[in-house]
């Protein structure tokens, strides 16, 4: 490969990365607004409505405020690691998008080990929290870091097993192949695609995956890491300004990522639910967007509905319920695939 070809390819990739990250940042900004609006409506309030029409400029105002605030580093903090924490938090949240397929053939890196890559990167996210908690040199921050380390490591196992089941029925680690595999089957040939998607035969796995996803992103009702009432804001307590904003960016980006992955692995990705002319006319990307929007709204709905779990209950749910459920379903699906009633041939 000569230098010019390499240069053009690099420039093309960079443009693609910008085309993913810039809309993603906008999505994160407006997800915060949507969260406040939706929870407001659920609690019979109207939510933010002062900045711009219908409060639509609220995220912009928030962003400007956070950008202009001073970043304070505590005197006894470990300065280098204190700054490294938020960076390590946002890095995997951004890098994971490299293998997400947005439409047929529209993916930054169409690699064979995509699912493994995702698991490896999501498991890196915990470092940001631990380092931030330790480097702050504060007891609350440290407690938050310890809680999150234990919680994320526990739920990663259930999540990993759930992904193994998906990988078994799809026969591939490539996310595009996983989507395509869901477009085949008895119901898909009858035109009702949505019954062929993975959510139906793998329903328990879907539940385990999604709930583990909520726990991995430290969202309510699993947000003991932040736990305002007991440890104030956990690992984020000493951060201000843009450093604080990075934690929030990472959290919301991870929410969107988990929703996208749920859509890709269980709800057929970019595929339309019914094979009809009207539905096929909608661009594939719009279907993915719609699915992600619905799933991400579930995160907010849960936050408005459930009270925070106690810490030992979180551990019990992860280790004693989710891991056995996934293991049993793994065996059931494995046995099912060997019989002649297998629907994945």
């Amino acid at each position: 490969m000569d230098w010019r070809a390499a240069l053009i390819e690099t420039a093309w990739n960079l443009a693609f990365i910008v085309a993913i990250v810039a809309p993603l940042m906008l999505c994160v900004a407006y997800l915060t607004l949507w969260e406040r609006k939706l929870i407001g409506w659920m609690q019979i309030r109207i939510g933010p409505n002062r900045v711009g029409p219908l409060g639509l400029l609220q995220p912009i105002a928030d962003g400007v405020k956070l950008l202009l605030k001073e970043i304070i580093v505590p005197t006894n903090a470990d300065r280098g690691l204190f700054i490294l924490g938020p960076i390590l938090m946002i890095m995997p949240a951004l890098a994971a998008w490299a293998v997400v397929p947005f439409a047929p053939e529209v993916v930054l890196a169409n690699i064979n080990a995509g699912l493994l890559y995702l698991m490896a990167l999501t498991s890196m996210g915990v470092y940001g929290v631990i380092i931030a908690g330790w480097a702050s040199n504060s007891k609350y921050a440290f407690l938050g870091a310890m809680r999150s380390a234990a919680q994320m490591v526990s739920y990663e196992i259930a999540m990993g097993f759930a992904l193994v089941v998906v990988l078994m029925v799809s026969g591939s680690l490539n996310l595009s192949d996983i989507v395509n595999a869901q477009g085949r089957g008895m119901f898909a040939s009858m035109g009702i695609n949505f019954l062929s998607w993975n959510w139906l035969p793998l329903l328990p796995i879907l539940v385990v995956y999604f709930v583990s996803g909520i726990a991995e992103t430290n969202r309510a009702p699993f947000d003991v890491v932040e736990g305002e009432s007991e440890i104030v804001a956990g690992h984020m307590i000493e951060y201000s300004g843009m450093a604080f904003a990075l934690f929030f960016l990472a959290e919301y980006m991870n929410m969107i990522l988990i929703s996208t992955l749920t859509a890709v692995m269980f709800f057929g990705g970019w595929q339309p639910p019914i094979d009809s002319q009207l539905f096929n006319a909608v661009p594939p990307f719009a279907w993915l967007l719609l699915k992600v929007f619905v799933i991400v709204s579930l995160f907010l709905w849960f936050r408005a509905t459930f009270p925070r779990y106690r810490y030992d209950q979180i551990m019990r749910l992860g280790w004693k319920i989710f891991i056995p459920v996934t293991l049993i379903w793994l065996a059931v699906v494995g046995a099912w695939m060997q019989t002649r009633w297998s629907i994945w041939s």
Partner: peptide, 25 residues
Amino acid sequence: AEFLAIALVLVYVGAVMVLFLFVVM
């Protein structure tokens, strides 16, 4: 060796070293 590379990150970076860090802290 993409499988080994990702497995190294997944197992050692993502799990083993987290516990190391946990204990050392």
